[in-house]
Amino acid sequence: MTAEQTSIIATLGVRQEFDAAVEADARTAFLVNYMLRSGARALVLGISGGVDSLTAGLLAQRAVEHLRREGHPAEFIAVRLPYGEQADEHDAQLSLETIKPDRIVTIDIKPAADAMMSAVQVEAADLVNGPRHHFHLGNIKARQRMIAQYALAGAAGGLVIGTDHAAEALMGFYTKFGDGAADILPLSGLNKRRVRAVAKHLGAPESLVFKVPTADLESDVPQKPDEDAYGVTYNEIDDFLEGKEISAASAERILAAYRATGHKRELPIAP
């Protein structure tokens, strides 16, 4: 294992030891304790139908139920944020059935996202049209979703949960100030296989635990697998984060992504 790999593993908080039950309890306690310290009365999270939001949602519901048993006001608001009709809506509904959140709110982001893209195009069509049009629209979608979640959290006196984990953080695979914006990250330090293990421990159905991950942001390639965008597999990413040896080509691709996306993992630069 190289010095750079060792440094990245430490920076992203990936521990050598892992036990799904221990992690589930510790991360639930993390949410509980932070809500008590902050005075928050709610947790808000967008549910997409993928394993990351499912796992974070299961932890959130456990946390608020624990708080209520102790006499503290707390609720979990699960938010559906489709862009029009979502291709895997069935999976999103199955996630909600599995989590059983206190409240479900559905907000269609398509009108707002399309309106923002249209407004940008009025004087800057040359910048956002062309072969990367759907990529830019995808980033607008991600940011509109976070606008909606913060609107709910602000009104409910709550915190927005992010689903970022070590595998996505390593690859910088999230939209800056979109799904990368949040108040609290209960999955931080877990790689993808460990997120799946926690989900399975919490009773999630295998069809969702092992579903092919997709950000599903680009309308011209709906349901595009994350791994197609990465050029490496989650198994390779997870092995890298666990200090295991992977092929030189895959390691270099991972390192290139990590170096290129460093700005996403930092606070805004100031003089």
Rank of each mutant, 00 (worst) to 15 (best):
Q121N: 07
R80I: 00
A142I: 11
Q149V: 06
P111G: 00
E75T: 07
G138D: 03
I107P: 00
Y174G: 00
A181C: 09
I107K: 03
D88P: 05
P82Q: 02
M116K: 08
A181N: 00
T163Q: 10
A155H: 15
E168M: 13
A92Y: 04
A181F: 08
H134G: 00
G71E: 05
P82D: 01
Y150V: 02
Y150W: 07
H90G: 10
E70R: 13
A125H: 13
M117Q: 02
H133S: 11
D102L: 15
D108K: 11
I107S: 00
A181E: 06
F135N: 00
D126T: 12
D102W: 15
P131D: 05
H134L: 05
P73L: 14
V160F: 09
A166Q: 09
D88F: 08
T163I: 12
A92H: 06
A169L: 15
H72S: 08
H136D: 01
A156Q: 09
V128Y: 05
V64N: 05
R132C: 07
E89Q: 10
F173R: 06
L94Y: 07
G178K: 08
E70K: 14
D114C: 06
H133E: 09
Q93I: 08
I109D: 04
D88Y: 10
G154H: 13
I77F: 13
G162T: 08
T163P: 06
R68C: 09
L127R: 08
I140L: 11
L159H: 01
I77T: 10
A148E: 05
R145C: 01
A119E: 14
H136E: 06
H90K: 08
H136N: 12
A113S: 09
V160N: 06
T98E: 11
A119P: 00
K176H: 12
T98G: 11
E85S: 04
P131V: 10
G180N: 11
V160Q: 00
I104Q: 07
G180P: 05
D88A: 15
G84K: 07
E85Y: 02
F76M: 09
Q144P: 05
P101H: 12
